[in-house]
Design a protein around this nucleic acid. Structure first.
Lengths: 235, 235
DNA sequence: TAGTGGTCTAGACCACAGC
DNA sequence: CTGTGGTCTAGACCACTAA
């Protein structure tokens, strides 16, 4: 038996009461001084337990009023959007990246607005393979003003996403996930029928207010899925 | 100027250093006693800041070794998986739910294994409409042993997902997102061509070790996308 | 084995929102 | 106004593990 920290025990017991239905949304929880007496510990210990529950969104704490069981949460989950090379390798499968085009240019007007930059841009397309089969077609634009070093990188060996993760910190990102019918160019690159269903992932990454990169990946439907998990306490 | 808590300021400064690149993955962070001296505060205050960062996965803390900037960040994003009725209403669009079937039964063998329960199960199918157009076809199974009250609910008025969110707490959930070609039954329910691309969302929700519900939603490709965001500090 | 984080105490003052 | 949570202190002992 490993001894469990007291604050963790308090936290777990209250959580269990909420999940088991003994405490219902809106119910009031004993005040810190009461719990402190009940468990025979210092107030900070109780506070640590309650703060953790509040941080998880299971409690709402209001000064002068007390602590209350929160309303059922919105379903927000943690989605791990992997670096493809690493993710495939982690599954024990072989990985290969085929660079199919690489171009440096000033972005066209439409692209400039989409990227939110007027600086020069590195445009790259290529295909990710897993176990020798095409998995995803990638089109990417990279802001050279923010990431000048990537112009020197050998992107035929390292997929641009892997290079960027290793070299460029970012502050914000947005992913859009949708399903589409494969356009001709994508279908040809992936060796599937035109119009076949694809999972499309569009990601845009910022550093501060500047766009770092913008990428669109078309996945062969049968060969890929995204998994998102949520558990209280982030386990 | 609202005064910011000291532990929060410490947390934010270290986080900024990590995101800004001054601290790189694997770098060691000053030990608690050093930070305590630097900020002129008690050790618990520093500890609270570092514990929060460790909880966010930005730091890894090892006894006897110290605190280190966590691994090359997996792109973890917060994916909001909305209650469809609420999400559509929030966009100012009209929403309608059509219940197409409702059945209580002991699950077949395959279903029992999939659900992880042998108790009776409520099976429901229906279609979500937005602005009068079919948006998603839903197939759902609900564990009646855990949620007996839903047998009395009027699921022709309230979609089961909305009812569950309002009434049932859960401890863990998993979402799988993929693209598929619409099967015949789905295509017919949504009024699209058989084989047309669909975004498929499969969600399974647990309370403790028991499955609460399992749902599969097929979205018409052009009419829906999922958005996941990440910002430092979870904003 | 020694240094680090993990935990806990018994106080304290303050801000703020309900009463 | 007063009770509640928010924050902080200056100690302390322990568990674990890396050196």
């Amino acid at each position: 038996m490993k001894p469990i920290a007291l604050h963790e025990r308090i936290r777990a017991e209250i959580e269990a009461a909420i999940l088991g239905g003994q405490l219902r949304p809106g119910d009031r929880i004993p005040k810190e001084t009461e719990l402190m007496a009940e468990y025979g510990c210092a107030r900070m210990t109780v506070n640590k337990a309650l703060s953790a529950l509040a941080g998880n969104g299971m409690l709402e704490r209001r000064k002068r009023a007390g602590s209350f069981v929160a309303q059922p949460r919105t379903q927000s989950m943690v989605l791990d959007v992997p670096d493809l090379a690493a993710a495939i390798a982690a599954r024990g499968q072989s990985y290969r990246w085929d660079l199919t085009s690489r171009k440096i240019s000033a972005p066209a007007r439409a692209e400039a607005e989409a990227l939110g930059v007027r600086a020069k841009v590195l445009s790259v397309t290529g295909v990710h393979f897993s176990e020798g089969l095409p998995l995803a077609f990638e089109e990417r634009m990279i802001n050279l003003a923010l990431v000048p070093d990537i112009a020197e990188a050998d992107l035929s060996q390292t997929p641009p996403g892997s290079w960027l993760i290793a070299h460029v910190p970012w502050t914000e990102a947005e992913n859009r996930i949708s399903a589409t019918a494969a356009p001709v160019a994508v279908a040809r690159a992936l060796g599937i029928a035109r119009g076949a269903p694809c999972l499309m992932l569009e990601r845009r990454t910022w550093r501060g207010t500047d766009t770092v990169t913008r990428v669109r990946q078309h996945f062969v439907a049968d060969r890929y899925e995204l998994v998102a998990r949520f558990g209280p306490g982030g386990n």
